[in-house]
Design a protein around this nucleic acid. Structure first.
Lengths: 243, 243
DNA sequence: TCAGCCAACTTGACTGACCAAGTTGCTCTC
DNA sequence: GAGAGCAACTTGGTCAGTCAAGTTGGCTGA
């Protein structure tokens, strides 16, 4: 006795039209069959056809022009919202799953930049958790997590064991909120003396510094994850539509 | 005799629901009125109500749960696709509208990195257009545009006049294509001797280097716009949803 | 008291129909 | 030959109705 999931009709139409676009049957720039033709071919009501075509338009597979028709663009080069983003990775990184060593984990006064990102007073108590990440036996990056002390208290963030979950989980649970979006800041700077030693770079080296500030839906920030990477060995990559 | 645009009914419903969410009448976490209630209150058919609610869901104002109802999230912190992106600005920048001076404009052999981004052989002929951008009478960034020579030939990119349009327009017209998306690479490096002189920084300074590669929908790249900024004076900022 | 069932409620999907707005090509008139 | 009008076609918006799938609360029976 097996149960078979049948997708809704509009989803089936989406899949078939994508297949035809991908196969070249409907090449970029060519007109799509009219709604009326698709209704006849697939035996569907117009609103069902229109729903499928609406999804394809929203995803960027086609463009529509009232009175003229719909035209093929092709598989969207950018899968909307699908890109890997540095901040997301940092927030969800499980220390137990990467080669890393804990440098420090405990309360410190918030430096000016971190205080500004967290919207708190400079020198407010925050918990700093700092690790050195290694890749292929080479020191690769230094990652620092900054959480307001009253939130981090009692969480594994202040402990010495490798984190089995990403920072996000601990902060969400401790603060009883859901993190919504990340504001990411990228800059370049020279390394501190400590960073020179840990990363094996010269004092004149150029480091990429990324600060991912995670906020809840209202915009209130709850955690900053900073990572510094030697510029000669790392490059951030991102893709987005032109308009 | 005046003509007044009346938005479609579903758009009016969207606007009213957004207003109520923003005003606190429907606070975050609270249930939205059911479809049936909205139909009665606004005198609309169910598909019209559903269409409006679908847009609000897609934009992140609400979340929906079949059988349970729809719940308020609030104004999305990230307006999808609305962020300013460095690559977009670079591609559409009109030299005539910024304080800049032309450093060079002419054919050069493609350096390795640029060739890789343009998917051409190293040392292939490309046109390099390089400008120094000034802000508040201070040298701020060096921007270089790299276009395959056969595309740039005959365009204002090889000329000495300030560009009145962004690079995008010239490339699209010359190549007879439409640019679709940008793949952006960010790294940190030390300045060249020339850059030290132009930007007024020390050889040990850390520069942010941004390469925006503009591609058509098929993924074929057509132009690279590089910009280098002193790290101590610049920071890139970006925001995106966590999931 | 607890578990199961059912009714009422909710959103998801689908149908058929009609009117509005935009596009294009053909025909007719000047 | 050029311009205007109209018919046929296209997508955009709206209505009314039905069935499917999921949730919740109340009632009944063990």
């Amino acid at each position: 006795m097996s149960f078979k999931y049948t997708p809704p009709k509009y989803a089936q139409l989406i899949a078939e039209l994508e297949r035809r676009i991908e196969s070249g049957e409907y090449p970029p720039g060519s007109p799509l069959p009219s709604e009326h033709q698709l209704m006849a071919e697939f035996g569907m009501a117009r609103p069902t056809v229109v729903k499928a075509l609406g999804v394809l338009r929203d995803q960027g597979w086609i463009v529509t022009h009232q009175g003229k028709g719909r035209f093929v663009r092709g598989r969207p080069a950018i899968a909307s919202g699908q890109q890997t983003r540095m901040g997301r990775e940092l927030l969800d990184r499980k220390e137990a799953q990467v080669e890393s060593s804990l440098l420090s984990a405990g309360p410190v006064p918030a430096p000016n930049r971190i205080a500004a990102y967290l919207n708190i007073e400079p020198k407010s108590p925050v918990v700093l958790r700092k690790i050195l990440v290694t890749r292929d036996d080479e020191a690769s990056e230094i990652s620092s997590t900054w959480v307001p002390a009253d939130v981090a208290e009692g969480t594994p963030l202040t402990g010495t064991d490798d984190l089995k979950q990403g920072v996000r989980r601990y902060v969400e649970a401790a603060a009883g909120i859901q993190l919504d979006h990340i504001v990411e800041h990228v800059t370049a700077r020279n390394p501190t003396r400590e960073e020179c030693k840990l990363l094996g770079v010269k004092p004149s080296a150029a480091l990429l510094a990324v600060y991912a500030v995670a906020r809840e839906a209202t915009g209130k920030p709850w955690v900053v994850v900073e990572t510094v990477l030697p510029g000669d060995r790392h490059e951030l990559e991102d893709a987005y539509p032109i308009k």
